[in-house]
């Protein structure tokens, strides 16, 4: 089926299989491989993208559901080569280890800050509760998001 949508401010018109997941559309069709697949069932959050301002697991969204909608992926965070403040703070705070959860983590954090520019630690932890990190134990990620919000 034919769908129209926006990814990272770019307009697309595409003929897709109705059962295609948004994750596969991003990774396979648009080759935006920054969005990762860690579990395929909405538990790990590594495929998180922002859809109409909300963080969603792209493995649980079907391509037709994005028709007429706007998606932001990790590739859309930096402005040209200028890193988003969140990206900078993740680096400064050693919040990036293996990096596989990082894109999803960043997108959950970005969606939070878009809606709530000055979240509490508790609100940050709730916002990333759907994003599993096996390397860093969350403290540095929470600190990075907090720092980005306070800056």
């Amino acid at each position: 089926m034919l769908i129209e949508f926006k990814v990272n401010a770019k307009q697309y018109k595409m003929d897709v299989c109705p059962t295609m997941r948004l994750l596969d559309l991003l990774r396979e069709e648009l080759r935006l491989t920054g969005t990762k697949e860690g579990c395929g069932e909405g538990e790990c959050g590594s495929c998180t993208v922002i859809m109409e301002g909300k963080a969603v697991n792209s493995c649980l969204v079907l391509a037709p559901q994005i028709c007429g909608k706007e998606i932001i992926t990790v590739e859309g965070l930096a402005d040209d080569r200028e890193l988003d403040l969140l990206q900078q703070k993740f680096m400064e705070h050693s919040a990036v280890e293996c990096g596989f959860c990082t894109p999803g983590m960043l997108m959950s954090a970005k969606a939070l800050l878009m809606k709530n520019p000055h979240p509490t630690d508790e609100e940050i932890r709730t916002a990333i509760a759907g994003n599993l990190c096996r390397c860093a134990g969350y403290s540095k990620i929470v600190a990075a998001i907090k720092d980005a919000a306070d800056a």
Binding site: T35, V74, E75, E92, T102
Partner: peptide, 19 residues
Amino acid sequence: FPCDDAVRKVTGDLAYGCD
């Protein structure tokens, strides 16, 4: 120091095996 490939990780540019 951030890990040396941190920029590529936060931008989604770093290709893992699956990519």
